[in-house]
Every structure is written in structure tokens, then in C-alpha cells.
């Protein structure tokens, strides 16, 4: 079934009571794609991700992941949230966080040797092999983000969803991250949400602009200028429809 798209949305709409967030979205993401979702705050980017994960139910239309309803195929998706609302006093080491990627519902007792090895490999991939025993709370924002990417990789996913993976990274680490994502794209389909226009133009294959509805472009069609133009246009649109923009922001 190599032809089944990884993600396929048809007429997808989602609204909170009184506030539409996404309206009539059609999106197809084929296997092996490297897509960036861009758009203004409150435009529905995170809502789209949550629909793909099956954490939200569409109010109209359909969404299929690997040709099936999202909730059935969650275990094939590796997800990195934008933030983990975590308690800085929570006693948890880096290794423990990444091990959560190996979690199963009814498996009793401690993780096995294979799970531990997979976790160390995932940490090595994001360049944090030496940090396995450190307290998670003691890491910098960028390091924590990489730990969360390692957790998503530890799931052995076929689809990687990353919400703002470059937000907290300094330029040097961003380059490393870019290399990492490129290498991963050889074996996985990757969808990221990003505000980083430069990143979008240089590295991804396709761009999906989300603001109430979604438009897909090939990345090479997009220059920095045209994206800025798009944002400018979108921003005006948002200021016209203020209530919608705020409603969308609640979805985060």
C-alpha cells in the first residue's frame, strides 16, 4: 500500500462552540514527504496537528492517517509537543523521559534491555548520549526540546510530527537539527510546525499554509519574500477577524 498517503484530509473542519478554527481543509501528504506547516498564531496549525493525532474530533469532513482513523494508528506516530507543561520539581531523568516513548498500555514491570538500548540510540541521534542520567529539569530549553524529539524517535514512528522544533535553539544547534531531520527524512515522513521562515525555504520539500483553511505549495516556489507577503496578508486577515484568531489560540 505504498500509494496510501500518510495524511489525507477531505473537507476537514473543526470549530469550538461559536469559533470556527479550520474550515474545509483538503490536504494530502504522501509517504516520504518533509512538510512544514506555517501560518499566523491562532490560524489553526496546532489544531491541525491535534486532529492528525486524533486528540480532537473533526466537526465535519474526514481525516485519515495511513488510510485509517487517527486514533487507531497513533502508535505509528512520533509526536513532539511545543511545550510539556511539566513541574520543574518532578524527579525524572532524561532517560526516563525518553523511555516513555517505549510505553505500552498493559505491559507490567520495568522496561527491558531492548527498550533501554533503543532509548540510548535515540539520545545519541539527537546528540545527547551523555545526558541520559541527568535530571530533565536541569537541562536548557533547547536540550529539553531535543530530549522530546528523542522521545518521539524512541516510538519507532513512520510519521514524525514536530511542533516548533527549532523555536528554542541557537543557530549552531539549529543547523545540527536540520541535518538530523534531513537524515531522518530518508526513513520517515516528517511534518513540522515552524515560524522559522528561513528554515522553511531552505530545508523542507513542501509547505502548507494554514489560516482557517490550508494551501499547499512546493518549497521551491516559495521565497522568503513570498512567505513574508503571505504572512502580511494573513495578519491583515486576522485583524479583520479578531474573534476567530483568539478562538484559535485556545486550541493550544
Amino acid at each position: 500500500m505504498a500509494d496510501t498517503p500518510v495524511i489525507e484530509a477531505r473537507g476537514l473542519s473543526f470549530s469550538y462552540p461559536l469559533t470556527p478554527v479550520l474550515t474545509d481543509v483538503d490536504v494530502t501528504i504522501p509517504r516520504g514527504d518533509f512538510v512544514c506547516i506555517v501560518g499566523p498564531n491562532g490560524g489553526g496549525k496546532t489544531t491541525l496537528l491535534r486532529l492528525v493525532l486524533g486528540l480532537l474530533t473533526p466537526t465535519a469532513g474526514t481525516i485519515r492517517v495511513f488510510g485509517r482513523p487517527p486514533a487507531e494508528v497513533r502508535r505509528r506516530i512520533g509526536y513532539m509537543p511545543q511545550h510539556v507543561l511539566f513541574d520543574p520539581q518532578f524527579p525524572v531523568r532524561v532517560r526516563d523521559v525518553v523511555l516513555m516513548g517505549r510505553l505500552r498500555n498493559w505491559k507490567l514491570g520495568p522496561f527491558g534491555r531492548a527498550d533501554r538500548a533503543r532509548v540510548l540510540a535515540a539520545l545519541a541521534e539527537v546528540g545527547l548520549a551523555d545526558y541520559a542520567g541527568r535530571p530533565f529539569a536541569a537541562l536548557s530549553g533547547g536540550q529539553r526540546q531535543r530530549v522530546l524529539i528523542a522521545r518521539a524517535l524512541a516510538c519507532d514512528p513512520e510519521l514524525l510530527l514536530l511542533d516548533e522544533p527549532t523555536a528554542n535553539l541557537d543557530p549552531l544547534v539549529q543547523d545540527e537539527m536540520t541535518e538530523l531531520l534531513r537524515a531522518l527524512n530518508a526513513r520517515l515522513t516528517i511534518v513540522i510546525v515552524s515560524h522559522d521562515v528561513g528554515f522553511v525555504a531552505r530545508h523542507v520539500k513542501n509547505v502548507i499554509c494554514v489560516n482557517r483553511t490550508a494551501v499547499r505549495h512546493a518549497a521551491h516556489e516559495i521565497t522568503g519574500d513570498s512567505i513574508r507577503e503571505l504572512y502580511g496578508h494573513d495578519v491583515r486577515l486576522v485583524s479583520h477577524a479578531h474573534g476567530h484568531a483568539e478562538g484559535g489560540a485556545h486550541s493550544r
Partner: peptide, 10 residues
């Protein structure tokens, strides 16, 4: 620690 992630792991 992270209820949402746990839910996503089934």
C-alpha cells in the same frame, strides 16, 4: 508526567 503523550502511546 505527561498525560497527553501517554494517551498517544495507547
Amino acid at each position: 508526567f505527561d498525560e497527553e503523550f501517554a494517551r498517544l502511546r495507547g
